[in-house]
């Protein structure tokens, strides 16, 4: 299915947010996810299913002052 990930179309093969991270090969450390401008707590990543309307933003922590 096609989702929108960080403002770009993205072909997603799984079902949940957890699957998305697996597909992206990204660690869960230091990241946060929002769907349609709502922050999704880490405890819900496994059970949160994505659909074609999902606008997903993934954020990561980086160096800063």
């Amino acid at each position: 299915m096609k989702i929108v990930l960080n403002d770009a179309p993205y072909e997603f093969a799984g079902e949940t947010l957890k699957d998305l991270l697996t597909q992206l090969d990204k660690s869960e450390q230091g990241i946060a996810i929002a769907i349609n401008q709502q922050v999704v707590p880490k405890s819900l990543w496994r059970s949160t299913e994505l659909n074609e309307l999902s606008q997903v933003f993934i954020f990561e922590s980086i160096a800063g002052g």
Binding site: L5, N6, I58, E60, S61, I62, A63, G64, G65
Partner: peptide
């Protein structure tokens, strides 16, 4: 202090 930004999906961040 640390910052947040949209994840770089193409490159692995330090």
């Amino acid at each position: 202090t640390l910052s947040l930004r949209r994840m770089d999906l193409k490159n692995q961040t330090d």
